[in-house]
Amino acid sequence: MSPLLIALLGVMLVPLFVATWRTSLLGLACQGLLLAWLAYDVLMFKPLAGLEVWMFKTLARLETMPDLATASQAGAWLTLFDLAVIRGLVAPAALYAVLRARAQPSRDDVLPPNLLTWTLALGIVLVAFTVSESLVAAAGQQQTLVFVAVAGLLLGFLVLSTQSSPLSQMIGLLRIENAIALFELGGEPEPALGIQLAQVAVVVATIALFRWYLKSVSSASGISAAEAVADGAGAGDALVEGPTL
């Protein structure tokens, strides 16, 4: 198995068992940077040993077509920018700035700290391995890539399903998006540059909205207050209200 993919699986797993938000964000940053490294190997014609991916084959074909090859090169750089800068640096930094500004207590359980969820997390890794075996028959790098992507996806869902705080949910969601990005690396050729740009814009807009929501949690009229109201009144039934559009 590729050391990079193993390292990626490691940074997907370890932060789940270390209950601080800084570790979670560091884990996200590491995921982004490792993904970028993987992408670099794939996109810049240095495939990992035995890693046969569509993208590589397609890019190799495109070498004979200068215009397309240039466009593809730009797409490759955009992918690297997305993974390394946006997902690896901007996303964790944007959330970090908000949490630091409001002096968030360092403890933050990404998973509930009990044996059941830890067993579930490890069980998910085994399930991911079985799934990858059934999806990719031949053992090899492609199977490993699918295994790590499925594990990342399922772990992201585990985080989402066991947590109700917006921060943990954001981390869960970003984990899922990273897993999909990994899956994309081993898949079909890149889409057109415009579509790729739009995809990056969507990621940036999502992060900006995350930041906005996270800020409002700390404000007096934030989600915590809303939860208190809803818990008291039942199912969001604050029925008497002022005018709205």
């Binding site: 996806l153 989402l160 917006p166 949910q169 969601l173 899922i176 998006e177 999909i180 899956f183 999502t206 909205l209 929501y213 409002s216 009229s221 934030g222 989600i223 207050a225 809303a226 939860e227 109201v229 809803a230 969001g236 604050a238 209200e241 002022g242």
Partner: peptide
């Protein structure tokens, strides 16, 4: 001025993002 609407908005975004991630995958 309506905190519960912010929570609803967050849940909408969260579910939308998860749903569309599944679609993309």
């Amino acid at each position: 001025g309506v905190p519960s609407s912010r929570r609803a908005s967050w849940r909408f975004l969260l579910f939308s993002a998860v749903a569309l991630s599944l679609v993309l995958l």
